[in-house]
């Protein structure tokens, strides 16, 4: 790509005179007042624009948050997340918006949209009430002993035997087959382990989704510790009621007790992965789970 192309892209960034950056929607049902003590992206003061029982957590903005400076983007993202967290603490499970969603217009524009979509939004909020997203990552820090795998698999046992008896050239080819088979066996074991865990967690969660085993590289990784070569068995994301948190922790404790396995359990997060899409023809996004609430405005 050329610098010229980048400049062009910048030049055509949408502009607007008045806008509202939206962090999330919250249910105001049963809450008194709409005050929220928190600081927004770039230190902006955060407010709640309400329409009946639905509130939008916003700050006034005049431009899009766009930067090629990854560290800056990361700070924005962290701030965005903190505001959504604070909103969740104050008003219960929020409907989190994707980073950098900006309404063109003033409070009245946001209010009008809330009014128009009110039924859908209230249904989505009440459906998610008390539910949060939890993330689970199981890592094998201690690889399964190769000899254990060979003993447990007839093909590997057979290949191992043949390699020992074969002349050099043939042994080389057999060795290749052996390595391939070994990879298959490891992958199958990983899959079986992940399936078992999924099934068990499904008893306590409203939804369980398996994520890509490899974590996406992104701005988030800037400060992440380097990978120590451990093998990720699975990464799952769950939508679960907060009351089920302890039971889920219990299931994970059992996994963590297994030799060579480590479990990372994070949350409760706002239900980002499980947030619905709004708008005509809105469907699940590529690569992500379908919206769960069935509240898409169609």
């Amino acid at each position: 790509m050329t610098d010229g192309g980048r400049r062009d892209a910048r030049a055509e960034t949408p502009t607007f005179e008045e806008g509202r950056y939206v962090y999330c929607l919250v249910s105001l049902e049963g809450t008194d007042g709409t005050s929220l003590e928190t600081e927004g992206v770039e230190g902006e003061p955060v407010r709640v624009v309400d329409a009946g029982d639905v509130g939008a957590v916003v700050h006034d903005c005049e431009e899009i948050y766009d930067s090629a400076d990854l560290e800056r983007i990361r700070r924005w993202l962290v701030r965005h997340q903190r505001v959504v967290d604070d909103a969740g603490d104050a008003f219960g499970t929020p409907l989190p918006f994707q980073f950098d969603t900006v309404f063109r217009g003033d409070d009245a524009a946001v209010h009008a949209w809330l009014e128009r979509e009110r039924e859908t939004l209230e249904a989505a909020l009440s459906s998610l009430a008390g539910h949060w997203e939890y993330r689970v990552e199981v890592v094998r820090t201690d690889p399964v002993d190769e000899s254990t795998l060979v003993r447990a698999d007839a093909d590997l046992t057979d290949l191992r035997g043949r390699i020992e008896d074969a002349p050099e050239g043939a042994a080389f080819l057999l060795e290749k087959r052996y390595e391939r088979r070994l990879d298959e066996v490891r992958a199958r074991r990983r899959g079986d382990r992940a399936d078992r865990l999924r099934d068990r967690l499904a008893d306590h969660a409203r939804e369980v989704h398996e994520l890509e085993r490899t974590r996406p590289q992104s701005v988030g990784e800037l400060s992440a510790a380097a990978d120590d070569g451990a093998e990720t068995v699975c990464r799952l994301t769950l939508l679960a009621h907060e009351a089920a948190e302890a039971a889920i922790g219990g299931v994970l404790d059992e996994v963590a007790e297994e030799d060579g396995l480590e479990v990372r359990f994070t949350g409760p997060w706002p239900p980002y992965t499980f947030a619905p899409s709004f708008g005509e023809g809105a469907t699940g996004r590529d690569g992500g789970p379908e919206p769960t609430t069935g509240t898409d405005a169609r």
């Binding site: 999330c24 929607l25 990361r74 993202l77 962290v78 965005h80 997340q81 409907l95 989190p96 918006f97 994707q98 980073f99 969603t101 993330r135 990552e137 974590r215 996406p216 992104s218 701005v219 988030g220 990784e221 400060s223 992440a224 990372r264 994070t266 949350g267 997060w269 706002p270 980002y272 992965t273 947030a275 619905p276 899409s277 709004f278 708008g279 005509e280 023809g281 809105a282 996004r285 690569g287 992500g288 405005a297």
Partner: peptide
């Protein structure tokens, strides 16, 4: 803070999406 790294990507990818066609 460590755990937050886990969702940073999510903020870019997930969350309520308002379709352009709306």
């Amino acid at each position: 803070e460590d755990a937050l790294v886990d969702v940073i990507d999510v903020l870019l990818r997930d969350g309520v999406v308002l379709r352009a066609d709306v």
